[in-house]
Design a binder for these strands. Structure first.
Lengths: 320, 320
DNA sequence: CTGTTAGCGCATTCAC
DNA sequence: GTGAATGCGCTAACAG
């Protein structure tokens, strides 16, 4: 494949001139520019991007770390990131980690190695001291409250929104409230757990481990929750479900088992995915696509660290 | 940041030797290797991957073209691709195209520009003549029957499987059968459309445009289908739904509208996603994760063009 | 085993 | 306006 030197020779100019027309530099006479263009056409010239990267030290590639690609929460987030990336002429390198720390470190190392310009971490398992080792190599953006940290972030105040949701259920007359969540640890999960514990104290209810359901990620996990619920002597009367698909699964499973919603069990979802609307699920809207957009913009504009709090909205429907 | 030359100088060896220890080349004496390693440690040396790419002409990056990331079909496919990529030390560059041809061309151009080693196209809008212009630049792998083409492919015989599904419904006593699908065009959709038309001819039924429902991609689209169904004087008695989530949406919507399944309406899904199991939906299993794996392997091993047909399996449950 | 050297393809400084 | 020269950081003949 022809390179810049071949073009230069054939067009009777220097490589510099060729480089200039390549980069739309003004200092090049019209006739030479045309000559170069003509030869490029003739040779079907394609510039070698890797050489450009080496020379400029940037790649227009942004890394995106997600635990799973095949999950509606991260699906929407990545959708937002991808749309904004497209607009800004960036491409994405996807890291599906399955919450394995090594995968996350691989991503961080690509940042260090300048194979990506910046890194968006949508959810992580690694500790802060790991991330801190890499902040010097390029912008890192988190999807969690990271205000006092050396990175940028876009986040929801999960403590607040979870508290409000619990309060809402309480005001509706519920005293025994449980919740379903993806995982035990993780910054966002911890915030929610704390909100839950504090709420119980406030209303003077005992903390019951069995009211918390982990690994609630997909529609199909709703079945297991209802199963466990059915076996309880004293089940909760309301459930906060941090994912609308899991909530939909619970609602569906309840129907099959003759559990009436919201009378026997109130369900409150999260995210306001389309499925929540169809199934009339009361939910807390989280603008994931918009958050994705924001994350990407912060990744591009990584010189200064910024922090964006996104607010949520309660959507009242028929499951509470 | 220190480079290979700095290391060489400090360690008192040549850059070649440094390069050798970097690449685990055997021809290095143990003491020099250790010396180099020590200096690397001391300088916290990180090799510049872009320089490696430029020098070697490969990037260990594989492009993946999908119309939407946030869709369970492509979610599973990408999951399979990502897992296998991880195993083989490749990373993925994700192209979310929304079925815009320009986005697909961008991906193809990255192949041409050697920014990715090969390209997996999970679904496309562009014509073959576009793809053909890029086959010389690197391996291209399609997720559709591309046997007589200049690429590799992993695919389902959609004509056959659709025919069989229709036959199955017919044997169950259904004469008026419709289907729901993502889009009108597209290689796989066309195969299915042809199977449908041929089937109707075989059983001597008229082709009714209103029995075909397009844009059936997500759970929420089930509602619209049921809506339209309710307004029909002479609705189909069975529906083939090329996506389990859409099928689940239809089932859910039918319940709300007092349409009994399978008596009033039989539903047959596709993919065998977990949701199909929970909702007892009869479906045609398509091993998407496995297909993703295969696609990636073909992308890596792109010297020769190979073609893998994947077979589907009927899963009988309660909606037919 | 080891080092010298010539690329890889492009960007950019500096002198003309 | 233009081009020669140098550098980006690494790999891989080739010669020793």
């Amino acid at each position: 494949m022809a390179n810049i030197k071949d073009i230069a020779k054939k067009a009777g100019v220097s490589v510099t001139t060729v480089s200039r027309v390549l980069n739309n530099h003004p200092y090049v006479s019209e006739d030479k520019r045309e000559a170069v263009l003509r030869v490029m056409e003739e040779f079907n010239y394609q510039r070698n991007i890797n050489a450009v990267h080496l020379s400029k030290g940037e790649t227009l590639l942004i890394g995106v770390v997600v635990p799973f690609t095949n999950h509606p929460y991260f699906g929407q987030l990545v959708e937002g990131i991808a749309n904004e990336a497209m607009k800004n002429n960036y491409k994405l390198v996807l890291f599906q980690t399955n919450y394995e720390e090594d995968r996350e470190i691989e991503a961080l190392k690509m940042l260090q190695h300048k194979q990506i310009d910046s890194l968006i971490i949508c959810s992580r398992i690694c500790e802060w001291d790991v991330i801190n080792q890499f902040t010097e190599y390029g912008p890192i953006v988190l999807c969690e409250d990271a205000r006092n940290r050396n990175v940028s972030s876009t986040f929801i105040d999960h403590y607040m929104s979870f508290s409000n949701a619990l309060e809402y259920l309480h005001n509706k007359g519920h005293q025994k409230i449980g919740y379903c969540i993806g995982r035990k640890t993780g910054a966002n999960s911890r915030q929610r757990g704390k909100a839950y514990a504090d709420f119980l104290k406030r209303i003077d209810e005992p903390y019951k481990e069995e009211f918390i359901f982990y690994e609630c990620l997909h529609f199909e996990h709703g079945e297991e929750v209802v199963q466990r619920l059915s076996n309880m002597d004293n089940p909760p009367s309301a459930l906060l479900v941090t994912n609308d698909f899991a909530a939909a699964g619970i609602v569906t499973s309840c129907r099959e088992n003759g559990i009436h919603i919201p009378d026997d069990l109130a369900i409150m979802g999260f995210d306001n995915q389309p499925i929540a609307k169809i199934m009339h699920i009361t939910t807390l809207e989280i603008p994931l696509v918009q958050m994705g957009r924001q994350l990407l913009l912060q990744a591009i504009d990584g010189k200064k660290h910024t922090h964006q709090e996104i607010s949520v909205k309660l959507i009242e429907r028929q499951t509470v």
